[in-house]
Amino acid sequence: MLEIRNLVVDIDDKRILNGLNLTVNKGEVAAIMGPNGSGKSTLSYVISGKEDYTVVDGEILLDGENILELDPAERAALGVFLAFQYPLEIPGVGTMTFLKAVMNAQRKARGEAELTTPDLMRRVREAAEELSINQEMLKRPLNFGFSGGEKKRMEILQMALLEPKLCILDETDSGLDIDALKIVADGVNALRSPDRSFLVITHYQRLLDYIVPDTVHVMANGRIVRTGGKELALELEANGYADYRQQAAE
């Protein structure tokens, strides 16, 4: 599904990713853990195509195709979905208007027929119910005046509706209390399938109690420095990241 080879990325001449290699198989849930500043969020932005980063070297392959030359919309149409750490507020754009625009844009890019409004409404309503998103929220401008938990649920709602191949969750647990975290995790778990891969980026092990990963990668100083099973997360929780910082520096 996703294969990253020797990825080197700078921002403003500062090196953030430094020869990163990573493979995520079809249907796999991979967690990336690491200390602050290790480059986790950068990785999520570079996979989804944010402009501010300079890719100096390496490749990102999605189903064997290098996506580095594609703009964010083209990557999204191929099935890359990023659940933002800080979802953006869009004053003046109604949530339904937004959902209709993005769902149809992706369908159009894939050569599929556009959804009719009733069909779209039905899909949104069903998915919203699953995530305890009420109709009132759908009537407001996107993310405008939403609480932290509401914004994260709205991200998962979009994930459910857009049916991506690769879901990247960037610190999805940040700013969530335990109840909100459960709702979000249930939403994600419901979307797990043999055809869909997840890259779950988190600083804390807590999220992984609810979204149980198949693989855990440890990231430090712009590289994957260790890979293991889900037990690795517990080890990190107990011992912290100190060892890895040192290891990467050597």
Binding site: S48, G49, K50, E51, D71, P72, A73, R75, A76, A77, V80, F81, L82, F84, P87, L88, I90, P91, G92, V93, F98, A101, V102, A105, Q106, A109, P141, Q158, L162
Partner: peptide
């Protein structure tokens, strides 16, 4: 970027923002 990451082509994302 947020809008494009959701799959809106650039011009369409810009149009949505201008309209808003």
């Amino acid at each position: 970027f947020y809008l494009m990451a959701r799959g809106l082509p650039r011009k369409q994302a810009e149009a949505l923002m201008v309209e808003a």
